[in-house]
Structures are given as C-alpha cells and as structure tokens.
Design a protein around this nucleic acid. Structure first.
Lengths: 109, 109
DNA sequence: TTACTCTATCGTATTATTACGATGTATTAA
DNA sequence: TTAATACATCGTAATAATACGATAGAGTAA
C-alpha cells in the first residue's frame, strides 16, 4: 500500500514529510534552484532548462504548487512561477527544528 | 515510469533528493526524531514507539541505512540504531545550501 | 477568423513505495 | 536441546510517483 498513514503521526511530522517531498526528486530540486536563483519570476523557460518533457515539468510544478512552496501567477498566455516565500521560510524553519535536535556530543556509537 | 532520471541531473541535485527522501515520510521523520533526541542509541524499542508493524519499521530503517543517515550496529540479539553524524551534517549542509540560495529581497510577485 | 504559443490535463505504461503477515536467522536463556 | 527474543527478509497487495505523447484550452498576433 503506497499510502502513508498520516493520521498516526503528528502534524509537524506530516508537514516535514510534505515539505521534504518538494526536495525529494532531482527535477524538483532543479526547478526550485532555478526559481530561487533568479531575481525575477520565470515565465516559461523552465521546460527549456530541464531535460524533461513539458508534460512532466508541468506535473512537477503542480506538485510543488500543491505543497505550497511555489506560486504560479497567470500572465497570459504565460504563467509566472516563483518561490512562495513564507513556505520557503517554513521549510527552513522546520528542517532546522528537526536537524538541530541532534546534539553534537559524544554518543554510544 | 516511477523511475527518476538521475543521470540527467547534477550530483548535488541527486544527493539533495536522496537526503530529502529520508525526511519525506512521517514515519521516517518520527524514527529520525527518536534517534536524534535520545542521548544513546536505541537498541530495539523503535517498533513499540511507532504505530506500524515490525516489518514496516524494519523496511523504513533499511531505507534510512541505504541513504546513510543512520547506522545499525549489531549487539546480539539486538541491533543498535543511531544517527550517522557525518551524513546528518551533510543533510544540514546541503539543505542549507539550497535553502539559502533564495535572496530575501523584493521580487516580482 | 485563423494560426500560433504556452501551459494544463488526460490517458497510459512502468516502476517505486508503503504496509503487513509469515517466515527465516541468529543469539540468548532455560 | 529447546524455547524465546529480536530483527531481517520474503511474498504479496494496493496505492503513489514518474514520464511522455496527445490533446485541450486560453490567450495573442496576423
């Protein structure tokens, strides 16, 4: 069953997992890096920059929008994509919370 | 095709994606939090703390070991699990690298 | 209107992931 | 030796994810 039992975990754990999924595929990392590195939004061009078919890129963009980490504003006939800053910050925060729980002290192994 | 085309992306992008997968399921987040919060390794007990069957927990542990973010040292008849510190630090670093590429300045949308 | 551009969605094929019962294996305890 | 413990692996079922060609839709330009 490819279905995670989200009701059995905390909201924070589910949110971390959701945000991590945004980065859990190299194509989505590439998309997020392209959007984050540009000073302005990208209106198109994403397909040209990626070694994937247009339909596949669109599917990844849809998933990233669902998670909330990017926005897509319509600027006909194009769609303007950019990082959704509050969610980007949320990712920074929650990844920090999880990764900083590990104390860098002597341990048993 | 559920197969990511890793050869088409950079090593860094693939590594970020791999490490993100460690956090991309609430059960694995829970496991990593349990391991990170303990002062000592956990020799068993993980199944008791999680709302999943033993086989499922073992499968998640195997995936986390494959990624490298945890270690499992044998202490018969148990196995001692703990965070693999260098990889944990690697995760901190690469997530930081990606998340810090976004400049907090005025943007177009 | 017609043609063109850009993006989303549909349909479909393939592989991955998640989950758990059952079983195997290795060590300890009796 | 036998039983119990702890964990891994197998087998299997169901759902998710990845990818792309084809098509649809919405807007622009001619």
């Amino acid at each position: 069953m490819g279905l995670a039992k989200t009701d059995l975990f905390t909201e924070q754990q589910n949110r971390v997992a959701e945000l991590a999924k945004a980065f859990a595929h190299p194509a989505r990392v590439a998309i997020l890096q392209l959007l984050a590195q540009k000073k302005a939004c990208i209106c198109g061009d994403l397909v040209d920059e990626l070694p994937l078919a247009q339909a596949t890129v669109s599917q990844h963009l849809k998933e990233l929008k669902r998670i909330g980490i990017i926005k897509g504003d319509i600027d006909p006939p194009r769609v303007c994509y950019c990082i959704n800053e509050p969610v980007w910050e949320e990712a920074r925060t929650v990844f920090g919370q999880v990764l900083d729980t590990f104390p860098l002290v002597q341990r048993c192994c």
